[in-house]
């Protein structure tokens, strides 16, 4: 048996495959729900690493084909921007 708690689905928020599988089994079968509860996809990468793995897990457990599932919506500003940069105050380390 795989050690699911040693398999990292989301590096940003340290979420394991075990966490994801338990949630899906508890009835959270929409990636947006899983995002809100586990924070998967709320980290700096916005779900680039975890998104597809979670979809596959949802599909495996619920039997719904992956094509029928949707990924989470991305939100700006991508990659992050400092407040000072928004304001045009260049007091950067650069």
């Amino acid at each position: 048996m795989m050690k699911e708690d040693n398999i990292i689905v989301c590096r940003c928020e340290d979420v394991t495959l075990k966490d994801i599988r338990e949630l899906i089994k508890r009835g959270y079968t929409n990636i947006e729900e899983i995002k809100r509860i586990t924070r998967c996809g709320m980290g700096p990468c916005q779900g680039k690493n975890c998104g597809q793995i979670i979809l596959r897990e949802i599909s495996m457990i619920t039997g719904i084909p992956v094509e029928k599932l949707t990924l989470q919506r991305y939100r700006p500003p991508f990659g992050g921007i400092k407040f000072s940069e928004v304001l045009g105050e260049n007091n950067d380390e650069k």
């Binding site: 939100r75 700006p76 500003p77 991508f78 990659g79 921007i81 400092k82 000072s84 940069e85 928004v86 045009g88 260049n90 950067d92 650069k94």
Partner: peptide, 21 residues
């Protein structure tokens, strides 16, 4: 220059370059 986002309503595309938006 990194793309930050597109605000469709305002038709503004934001980009981060040299510490400025």
């Amino acid at each position: 220059a990194r793309a930050l986002g597109y605000y469709e309503e305002e038709k503004i595309f934001t980009v981060l370059q040299n510490g400025r938006m």
